[in-house]
């Protein structure tokens, strides 16, 4: 490989921004807006979607059919983001999301990935020993629950719709959203009423 770029990252950023502006590809305002959008994305967005899906069957159907449209329906900006797919956990099937090739992650709805999501250990073990991996999170699946490990290798981004915990009857969406953590939407943990 020839010509490895060595530059102070701030200077490199300024140089790229001015080139993008000069070529009419992206204005400084557009770049600032995009940075603000990226920083605003957090697991709280995905949790709002999950809570609504638990309360509203029509929304749940939309979310499973078209995750991008479901996110947009809650005002989550998806323009320019890869298509979002949603994987439904049930009493018989548990999904776990990994990207063995790199670190593909549904950032528009979950924000920045947790540090371990990009680790070699997580990526290698998720596809080979998923039940052992989950056990280290304290997540023990009953033997009658099948696992589906979703290796996010290409153009989609995937999030998990967890099973609504028992003893949450009558809870409103806001309270439900409060118990959904990022790991629940990756599939390493499951939400519990607390």
């Amino acid at each position: 490989m020839a010509g490895v770029i060595e530059a102070d990252s701030e200077r490199l950023l300024v140089a790229i921004e001015s080139l993008l502006a000069k070529k009419g590809l992206a204005s400084p305002q557009e770049i600032a807006e995009r940075i603000a959008l990226t920083d605003a994305a957090s697991p709280g967005q995905g949790a709002r979607m999950v809570a609504k899906a638990w309360c509203d069957p029509a929304y749940r159907a939309l979310m499973l059919a078209d995750g991008t449209a479901a996110a947009e329906a809650l005002g989550i900006p998806m323009r320019g983001a890869p298509p979002l797919g949603v994987l439904e956990n049930t009493a018989e099937l548990h999904h776990l999301v990994v990207c063995t090739l790199c670190s593909c992650y549904p950032r528009a709805v979950l924000g920045y990935p947790p540090f371990w999501f990009k680790s070699s250990a997580y990526r290698a073990r998720a596809v080979r020993d998923p039940r052992g991996l989950l056990a280290e999170w304290g997540t023990v699946l009953p033997e009658n629950v099948r696992m589906r490990v979703v290796d996010s290798t290409a153009d989609y981004r995937w999030m998990v719709l967890p099973v609504r915990p028992a003893a949450t009857d009558g809870w409103g969406e806001e309270r439900l959203a409060g118990i959904v953590r990022e790991g629940d939407m990756i599939g390493v943990t499951v939400p519990a009423a607390s």
Binding site: D129, V149, D151, S152, A154
Partner: peptide, 20 residues
């Protein structure tokens, strides 16, 4: 089939992967 690929794992567990 997850167990068929690695020679270990639970029966019925699967990998679901995007392939061109």
């Amino acid at each position: 089939d997850q167990a068929a690929i690695w020679g270990e794992g639970a029966t019925g567990d699967e990998l679901l992967v995007e392939i061109f």
